[in-house]
């Protein structure tokens, strides 16, 4: 691996990471993709050529053309416009669920990994309770009882998605705790909290970032599963996952109904993956310098 020679100047971890990141071409591509997606989500009304709910049954199930770049769906709505608008919903679900997951998972994981003993035991039992119930089944039960809609879907999915980050963080901490640099910090008298924040958390970020980038499309698909069972987000509001789910009955002939939303999800995932890998590499090298 060809690390650039360390520059003698004083530098912060963040600045160093930013420089590393800027030199990584894939990471920049990822950043660009995510930026485009966020722009689409924000400016959907300006970008989409048609309204997402403008149906015209007389133009149903048209294949892609100059007029409708991605064709039309079963009631004649423009697929491209629905995908653009779907960015808003699907990113809300994906990001919302992951933010919720991190908000719950990181503090609990830190607590478990650092304190050990009965606290760790209690938190890990809590994790087991939640993991013990298959995520989709629990979300299904929750939404069956409390109702669907965007907010409830995010809450239900986020309520079970925090487990991965919690467990990952704890596992990382358990392994890192005994490493040389922590031992070194400890011998020079650094406090537990300081060690956690300055050394352990940054070192655990890499797997977390990967978990988040994978979690986003997983959340998008989980929403699709719920929509498929009538428990997700209602029509005509478009979400990619629901579009893929609905397309199942049409896909064998009207391939465009399945392919484009799947591509949208794939692009989102790739974007976040590149971005995540780039961030990981940047922080990682900066730290291990």
């Amino acid at each position: 691996m060809n690390h650039p020679p360390p520059v003698a100047a004083q530098r912060t971890l963040l600045g160093d990471a930013a420089r590393r990141f800027a030199r990584n071409r894939l990471a920049l591509v990822g950043l660009a993709m995510v930026t485009i997606l966020l722009t689409m989500a924000v400016g959907a009304d300006q970008i989409a050529p048609y309204a997402y709910d403008a149906a015209d049954p007389a133009r149903a199930l048209q294949f892609p053309s100059g007029q409708h770049w991605m064709g039309t769906d079963e009631v004649g709505r423009d697929v491209y416009s629905r995908i653009v608008h779907g960015t808003r919903i699907s990113l809300s679900v994906g990001l919302g669920v992951m933010v919720l997951a991190l908000l719950i998972g990181v503090p609990l994981g830190l607590l478990a990994g650092l304190s050990g003993g009965p606290v760790d035991y209690a938190i890990m039992r809590l994790v087991e309770v939640f993991t013990a119930v298959p995520a989709l089944m629990l979300a299904l039960l929750l939404i069956s009882v409390f109702g669907g809609g965007l907010a409830n879907v995010i809450l239900a999915l986020g309520g079970v998605a925090w487990l991965d980050s919690c467990r990952l963080l704890r596992a990382q901490l358990l392994s890192l705790r005994e490493r040389d640099f922590v031992l070194a910090a400890r011998t020079v008298g650094a406090s537990g909290a300081r060690i956690a924040l300055r050394h352990l958390l940054p070192n655990s970020i890499a797997p977390l970032i990967v978990a988040v980038t994978i979690g986003i499309p997983v959340a998008i698909f989980a929403e699709a599963g719920l929509s498929f069972l009538g428990l997700g987000i209602n029509d005509p509001i478009p979400s990619w996952g629901k579009m893929v789910g609905n397309a199942l009955s049409y896909m064998r002939v009207y391939w465009h109904l399945g392919v484009f939303p799947t591509l949208a999800i794939a692009v989102t995932m790739l974007g976040f993956t590149f971005l995540g890998d780039g961030l990981r590499d940047a922080f990682d090298t900066a730290m291990n310098r």
């Binding site: 149906a55 049954p57 079963e74 009538g230 428990l231 005509p236």
Partner: peptide, 24 residues
């Protein structure tokens, strides 16, 4: 699809917002 088409027509022709929920 019939429900979706009718919901869209209600919005377009009568200005009434309709969501379609295919339930369990």
């Amino acid at each position: 699809a019939v429900a979706q088409a009718y919901a869209a027509a209600l919005k377009e022709s009568l200005g009434i917002e309709v969501e379609v929920n295919n339930m369990d």
